[in-house]
Design a binder for these strands. Structure first.
Length: 533
DNA sequence: TTAATGTCAT
């Protein structure tokens, strides 16, 4: 039966299963895992139910992990919970295999609270349980928790492995914790984890997101047997660094190497086209997807709408949305509204707002965009109504925060923050630098104070936006040759973008700022995004 | 016969 499963012949296995007269636990777990291996989790679960109902067979430490994995694959939290209950009932929740797989299932369904509860109550934990929990936090963007747990794992003397590292390195990349990420990469090399494994792509991405495209290339070039993840990671690295030419070259090289692009590959390429304003090329790659037998997903459509919208082809973007075979997602509308804002098409934007609000509640981010669209079109009543709706639901925009890594510490700043121990020096540095910047031709553009709706932009705080405080702190404490990496949870405002260009010029430093939607590497008065953002 | 990983983006 396993023989057939490995050959991807689940129905042959099924036939054999039916014919076998004595069904042991092994027989049952084999048939369930056979369907899982062949990506038929629903069929797997059907057999799981059949076993419980007709055979009077109790699941064991082999069968439970199969069942939970099927739930995880289907993102079926409810059924996963019943499997968990059953495991408790028949006394298998203490088993390390069963426990770990339940943790993994909850984490994959996005329920970290349940995952953590099971994890904390496990009588015995091993590297799989720990890695699963860390992965869960990383997956949901809970970077701090992921790192905390990793530290706990080391404290417990756990021997971590490449599974653990791939999650931790990913967290470092996402939060621009370059120093830590570099250490982790070093550790992987020391423990001789193969870079061709999953660690490789995470390392490439981490270097890229920290502004070190050279480091990303080094890892990429050193490995001769590159997997698809590494190609994709390198593609997006070039795209993030606005090196569109290399993106196209890499894509060609990839095809020549016989590597088949997947849906993520096309997201990378479309992302590159949209941020470089290359409409013709974008359309070319979008239609190429069909040749590779890949159906464009909503994310690909969002990318295309972004591309067309930024280029001012708003009607064409709208037409593409109408043609979508699925419901347009929030990112698709968001992309269209961004295009409308850039090109001042208030009419289309406000009609989009009418349409989207009719469909039902939207996320706070999109809600703000939509109410701004009304305001821009002069429909102030609707704008006020939309804002009130948001307020009534108690949804607030996130507080703008920037952070910077220094030694083993992460220093976090909010706009106008005076709480940092070096506050006095930071503000003095900003004053001093401000004078240099003005001499170099910088003029503060206070219009952003009025344009941007949000907590940070009130009154005179523009001079002290969180990213500026973080940069000033780094200027004071970092050695002169060290690039400054700042991460921000909101979008950098237009004035800060200009200001940081001047900062890089006046100080001769490389300043890398990652905000929630773009990547900026400032060097000698220029930004890698080419002001196209 | 057992369990877990990466690469996109919002």
């Amino acid at each position: 039966m396993n023989f057939y499963a490995k050959l991807e012949l689940p129905y042959c296995s099924e036939q054999m299963f039916r014919e076998s007269q004595f069904k042991s636990s092994t027989t049952w777990s084999s048939i369930i895992s056979c369907f899982i291996q062949n990506e038929l989790p629903l069929r797997g679960l059907e057999y799981f139910k059949l076993m419980l109902r007709n055979d009077g067979m109790f699941p064991d430490d082999y069968i439970f992990p199969c069942a939970t994995k099927a739930c995880a694959m289907m993102n079926d939290y409810c059924f996963g919970q019943s499997v968990h209950c059953l495991a408790v009932k028949v006394g298998f929740e203490g088993n390390v295999f069963v426990g770990s797989s339940i943790v993994d299932m909850y984490a994959k369904c996005g329920n970290l609270r349940d995952a953590r509860k099971v994890f904390d109550e496990m009588p015995e934990r091993n590297v799989v349980s720990w890695s699963g929990m860390i992965y869960g936090y990383a997956q949901m963007g809970e970077d701090e928790e992921a790192l905390k747990l990793f530290k706990d794992a080391l404290w417990e003397g756990l021997e971590v492995n490449d599974f653990t590292f791939s999650s931790v390195i990913r967290v470092c990349g996402n939060s621009t914790l370059f120093e830590l990420g570099k250490q982790m990469h070093g550790l992987c090399l020391k423990l001789s984890y193969d870079e061709t494994s999953f660690v490789g792509s995470a390392v490439i991405s981490m270097y890229s997101k920290s502004g070190m495209i050279e480091g990303a290339y080094r890892v990429f070039n050193e490995v001769s047997d590159k997997n698809l993840g590494m190609w994709n990671a390198m593609l997006i690295a070039c795209a993030q660094h606005a090196d569109t030419k290399s993106v196209f070259e890499l894509f060609k090289k990839m095809e020549n190497a016989g590597m088949k692009p997947n849906f993520i590959t096309f997201l990378c390429v479309l992302y590159a086209c949209s941020h470089a304003g290359l409409v013709k090329e974008g359309k070319h790659y979008f239609s190429m997807m069909k040749e590779y037998g890949i159906e464009p997903g909503s994310q690909h459509y969002a990318s295309m709408v972004d591309l067309l919208g930024r280029a001012g082809k708003l009607q064409e973007a709208m037409k593409l949305i109408e043609e979508m075979p699925m419901q347009p997602t929030e990112s698709v509308w968001g992309a269209l509204l961004t295009g409308c804002r850039i090109h001042g098409n208030t009419e289309l934007a406000s009609s989009v707002a009418d349409r989207v609000f009719e469909l039902g509640p939207v996320s706070p981010g999109l809600h703000v965009l939509l109410s701004n669209a009304y305001a821009a079109a002069g429909r102030y009543q609707e704008a006020a109504k939309a804002r009130k709706m948001l307020k009534d639901r108690g949804q607030k925009k996130e507080t703008g925060l920037s952070w910077v890594e220094e030694g083993n510490r992460i220093h976090t700043f909010a706009a106008g923050d005076m709480t940092h121990e070096f506050s006095e020096e930071i503000y003095r540095k900003l004053e001093e630098l401000g004078e240099d910047m003005e001499r170099a031709g910088y003029v503060a553009d206070t219009s952003y104070v009025l344009k941007e709706v949000g907590a940070e932009e009130k009154s005179q705080t523009i001079k002290y936006h969180s990213e500026r405080l973080a940069i000033a702190f780094a200027l004071i404490t970092f050695p002169p040759e060290r690039p400054i990496r700042v991460m921000k949870n909101l979008r950098v405002c237009g004035d800060c973008h200009v200001a940081i260009k001047f900062m890089s010029k006046c100080t001769g430093r490389i300043i890398i700022v990652r905000d929630n939607n773009r990547f900026h590497r400032f060097e000698n008065g220029k930004c890698s995004c080419g002001d196209y953002w």
